[in-house]
Design a protein around this nucleic acid. Structure first.
Lengths: 112, 112
DNA sequence: ACTAATACTGTTTACCACACAGTATGTCAA
DNA sequence: TTGACATACTGTGTGGTAAACAGTATTAGT
């Protein structure tokens, strides 16, 4: 059951995580930093989800990266591109539409 | 590109569609009826997404079904179960949490 | 020296949205 | 009366992604 619950949450993360990451990368950030950033705002992502996602987004041209090798360990900073912003806005519009549908249906459920 | 966009929307539907269907099935409905119902509230699902989903949910015990063979074509009516309502509420809590995160991040983006 | 935190890469699995394909009945206009 | 369209469902295959599992290497604290 806890197993099935994890599956549910994984499904819920699809779509949402993409928006969250694209919004977060309005400010440059590297992977590990983002994991903690996300925890600070009350959510969580695991490494094995976030890192492949960042590589995928870069491949898509939605974000760009640059290595910071000046301070201690090398850090790969990512930042959203203009194309990424376009995608982000598109995703946000879909999200808001979906949120409207949910709100509407919820009201109907409440009002019997 | 339009191809990639479709993929994005497919991803956005994961999670959301589950909530929408579980909310809609507060009132008994059969598949085809739900497709039109969803269109009426300003969204859309294709048959090949909805029908397998309904079968899956029934297998999970989230919804139950019964055939209506009295009127013209046979219709498979589905309805949410108590277990389904528990799942639905869980999904809604996740959705609202995610919505909170997005709202928060959006404000930060707007405020520079 | 050892442990934990930091910061990343690589491979594999399970699941799902949707495309593609098919079956069968009911309705209505030319 | 036939042919198109709506209704109502089932079945199979594909591609993309979250997350499990696994590994590498550096730095900080004890």
């Amino acid at each position: 059951m806890s197993n099935k619950d994890n599956k549910i949450e994984a499904e819920m993360n699809r779509g949402f995580l993409q928006i969250m990451v694209l919004l977060a990368l309005e400010n440059p950030m590297y992977g590990y930093m983002m994991i903690r950033f996300i925890e600070n705002i009350g959510y969580s992502v695991v490494e094995n989800t976030l890192y492949p996602m960042l590589r995928r987004f870069e491949k898509n041209g939605w974000i760009s990266s640059s290595w910071d090798v000046k301070h201690d360990r090398p850090k790969k900073y990512y930042e959203i591109t203009n194309e990424g912003k376009t995608v982000r806005n598109k995703l946000l519009r879909i999200w808001q539409k979906q949120n409207g549908v949910i709100t509407k249906l919820l009201e109907e459920v409440k009002n019997g």
